[in-house]
Design a protein around this nucleic acid. Structure first.
Lengths: 152, 152
DNA sequence: CCTATATCAGGGGAACTGACATAC
DNA sequence: CGTATGTCAGTTACCCTGATATAG
């Protein structure tokens, strides 16, 4: 696409700009994550989100991870299977509540996370290259405000 | 999801914020477009993009519409079929180049477009409710700068 | 009895790739 | 000849909706 030749209406439409910018971001991120060997086809965004949540909040149930990362419980299962197969997380029944699993980050998982942190930071830099540091911070703040209202 | 409880890393990650905000926007937009009867399941974003492009630039080939709207040539076919079935556009062979179709907006199509313009404006207002007018303009400007760099 | 959790089965829209016939 | 155009077939990740078994 050549966004400069897009209809004015679209270029003024926040929802369209968001979807297009998110798409550009996803392309960059996926390209980068493809070289991280969590599955045979690389890593995906959900893998990173889950590792980050486990690192920041400690062991958690799948329901809690689902809430925190915005991933459906039904989709979580497969992603956790992949992380577990790669020995980046461990899954064990919760002794305090037999319905739940306790998902725990392994040492290898924490290592992976650090690596992903590094490459993802570089990707953000490329994505936001046209913006000054102040503008990047402003963009993050505005998006977070929008998101804090629309999320549930 | 409860984005307020998301990992700090994600809440600071522009690519993640973009994808989540785009998702929220898409939900609002889809919900609204579902009541516009272009297909039996309502309208989709691509329908609006195409109608807008035809309105602003006049009759165009499918390749040109693909470029302008950021829709793949292969996907365009089905969407145009739906618009044509609803008599919102007309498709005719280009007398100047037998490979091309000339896609033209009909009167009914222009009417539909005006209606969609109206409801989509309302959706943007809901989406950006937490932002002041100046902040909304700023967000649009920042997104467009990012998009103008990453598009091709 | 009602709710929560993990899991599975499946649909649907969207991004993307590749192939093909035709025409420039 | 190589390239552009419209079309078709098919893949994949992602969003989303159930249903089910089990346990609080």
């Amino acid at each position: 696409m050549d966004p400069a030749t897009a209809p004015h209406r679209l270029r003024e439409l926040p929802s369209w700009l968001l979807s297009q910018a998110a798409l550009a971001a996803a392309r960059l991120v996926n390209q980068t994550l493809a070289d991280a060997g969590i599955t045979d086809t690389g890593a995906r965004r959900a893998h990173y989100s889950l590792l980050a949540a486990l690192d920041e909040f400690g062991p958690a149930s799948q329901a809690e991870l689902s809430q925190r990362c915005g991933i459906y419980r039904s989709d979580l299962v497969a992603v956790l299977n992949e992380l577990e197969t790669a020995h980046l997380v461990r899954r064990a029944p919760d002794p305090a509540d037999a319905r739940r699993n306790v998902v725990t980050l392994t040492e290898a998982g924490a290592d992976q996370l650090r690596g992903l942190d590094r490459v993802l930071t570089a990707v953000q830099d490329e994505l936001l290259a046209p913006l000054s540091p102040a503008e990047r911070a402003q963009l993050v703040r505005l998006l977070r405000r929008v998101l804090d209202r629309h999320g549930g």
